[in-house]
Amino acid sequence: MKQYLAIIISFTALFLLSFPISAKKETSVKPNQAVITVSGAVCSYCTFGIQKKLTKLPFIDTDKLNKGSLMDIENQRLTVAIKPSVAIDMQLIYKAIRDGGYEPQGASVTRSNINDTINYDEQGQ
């Protein structure tokens, strides 16, 4: 039994040491989209709740992307489609993310003019 425990402990230690550190990719924000960095969003099955809660917001364009949002788990970036000419409430988007089990780290929103991007901090300000 001790030999097997030794093998298992060795495997586990090697596994822990092998975790990579990934670099973030910069992405541009398309018109009528918000891109939010979501800390820990590395599993689409786990972030399903964020997308479920976002679909209930009135300014989300559920005909775009994947029912209004798209999670990039490699870069922990959530892209949200916004209905044109409809005001958005970033606090509601942040609440949807928090209720979904994650913390938003900041966001960029572009409306009709691609050169007019607004940045938000982790408090949605």
Partner: peptide, 29 residues
């Protein structure tokens, strides 16, 4: 055993996930 474990382990040292213990993590899920 440690050397054997290391040798066997190296080809798969890039690994991951989702599992039921991670979901549903959202409120009222």
């Amino acid at each position: 055993l440690l050397v054997l474990a290391t040798t066997l382990y190296l080809p798969i040292s890039q690994a991951h996930q989702p599992v039921m213990d991670m979901a549903p993590r959202w409120d009222d899920g």
